[in-house]
Design a protein around this nucleic acid. Structure first.
Lengths: 332, 332
DNA sequence: GTGAAAGCGCTAACAT
DNA sequence: ATGTTAGCGCTTTCAC
């Protein structure tokens, strides 16, 4: 165990050439004879040499790394997106660093600072805070939650679902099942996204002549099973129970399932439920959850394509809005 | 938007001092007058300067980063561990980069290469392949799955649960419920861990005079709900059905729940089930899963403490084995 | 086709 | 207490 990490200089010496040439063959640019190339490659192979990424990145002032910021890695919606991005990026020769903010805005800011200091080449925000400032000078793509500034900012790219449609589909399904008092539970912190779902829901109610009303709108501070459980308890103990509930996230709806099970409430006999996202778990809970599918893996692949393009200098300030789809299962 | 990133040299010029001094105040080492320090800090503040991590890391040949390798970030067991490690590390001033191998051994190797090239200061392996070679020259700690070489290797640290006890507890619970034919389903790829659970299970059977037998041992290629579902189908369609099953992972047991629900099999009337891990989801499925708790958050915190110590030069080749605990719920 | 040399931003001797 | 400088490993002009 002499030199822990062999350097390009050493390789050059061993191959009887200069560092410049070694660099050329490693990066396949500039010119060098096939013979030299061969010799250099052999030495690299023999010594199992890997260029120091730190040095390379410092020199070009940009790391082959993209930061992926998610609010809750324990939610399948985000972990599957993260995995998709990671896989895609790896194939393209980039490293993804996944940062879980645990829903903390402070952590989000901290990560951005750190990622900048690491000179990452790009950042993918999944459902970041919509009030965040645009990141200057580094390609950023936003998934799911649209930051307020996106429209005006050059070099920003947004990918998300048609939330209006999602809200409409959910409410419509509930109406068609003959439900009359349809509650909706929203995430308090993600105003823009949630507002569109609310609008879709309202439009459906309106189209079918079903009464709505502020008392049917509930908000939840966090998106997890526990909050789903608790808001459902609150809803169910309210003076006028709804006969259907649309949860603005499968994970909330799954928490609701637990509550209703404990209370002996039969689904869909006593109450109908629809969620949104269609995470894998939704198909596996009991009863299986009727939901609105978001093609979140697509979000991931569009995002990785977009950052890579942007990192290569292309303008990619597009906005992608993907449509959603109702998935029929057992809770309606 | 002139200089995208201001450098230490610039700060020095602005503060009317030298780069060395600026470096000293940033890193709080060496000596400098309070006055100079103050002035430098002001400039740093004013220009919102952050040192270039790449340059710093290159210089000291070590990044303030630790790689965290997990096999399946979509499984709560791993995502909660990852989050715990990430949070702890952040507090200690390190950055965690989470790498999800998606159970691919190839990806695991690829990540190790990349992490090395990035000169990470340490690596935490969660349930990596036990046949992996020890990582030379960089602090590594292993969680859950004990690599074969750990005993002999200096500078390696292992943290895991008492799997023998886990197996014993699970089988014992099933026996005490009056079960006579107790099947066990194991993960085929993680031999060492699984063998201990199997031994615990066998010992319990032996202690209580319950017959075991090879035909009661099942293996699964992957740990997810789908595999849990399928192996359960196989078990249930076998000529001699068991009256109890111990799944070597909650996520498998949860897949089983789905199968039994679809088949109309009542739990625990027709069959008793116990899992292991006690992921949050287990408390929320229907029926709630009886399981053996692993203190996986503790695994995470012990691991982050250990890497940090090792990165600071301490020898920390300890092995921690944490005990497990039976959690009573509704499936027995 | 190839090499010498500058320099990315920082830290750590070594001077003063 | 502070400044000067070498050098980490690499890429990239610029000569030849």
């Amino acid at each position: 165990m002499k030199k822990e990490n062999i350097s390009i200089k050493e390789i050059a010496r061993l191959a009887g050439t200069s560092v410049a040439t070694v660099s050329r063959v490693i990066n396949q640019n500039g010119r060098f004879s096939e013979e030299t190339g061969q010799r250099v490659r052999e030495v690299i192979e023999a010594y199992n040499y890997r260029p120091n990424e730190l040095a390379r990145s410092l020199r070009v002032d940009k790391a082959q790394v993209v930061g992926v910021i998610v609010p809750d890695i324990t939610n399948e919606f985000f972990s599957y997106i993260a995995r998709k991005i990671e896989t895609d990026l790896l194939e393209k020769g980039y490293m993804a660093v996944i940062c879980d903010t645990n829903e903390s805005m402070e952590r989000e800011k901290q990560y951005i600072e750190t990622l900048k200091a690491m000179r990452v080449g790009g950042i993918i925000y999944v459902s970041g805070d919509q009030k965040i400032e645009p990141i200057r000078g580094i390609p950023a793509v936003y998934i799911d939650r649209k930051p307020e500034f996106v429209n005006g900012d050059r070099g920003s790219c947004f990918i998300g679902g048609d939330n209006y449609q999602g809200g409409y589909l959910a409410a419509q399904r509930l109406i068609r099942a003959g439900r009359k008092r349809i509650a909706i539970v929203l995430h308090a912190r993600t105003i823009a996204t949630q507002e569109k779902r609310l609008n879709g829901y309202r439009q459906a109610l309106y189209d079918y002549g079903i009464p709505g009303g502020e008392e049917l709108i509930y908000q939840v501070e966090n998106v997890d099973m526990d909050h789903g459980f608790r808001i459902t308890k609150e809803i169910w103990e309210s003076p006028e129970r709804p006969d259907a509930i649309f949860y603005s996230s499968d994970i909330l709806a799954i928490g609701a399932l637990q509550y209703f099970h404990e209370r002996g409430v039969k689904i869909p006999r006593d109450v109908s439920i629809v969620g949104i996202d269609d995470i894998p778990l939704s198909a596996r809970v009991t009863p299986a959850l009727t939901t609105v599918r978001q093609d979140y893996l697509k979000y991931g692949s569009l995002a990785s394509n977009a950052v890579v393009k942007m990192m290569k200098g292309d303008q990619e300030k597009r906005t992608y809005i993907l449509s959603m789809e109702l998935i029929e299962r057992e809770t309606v």
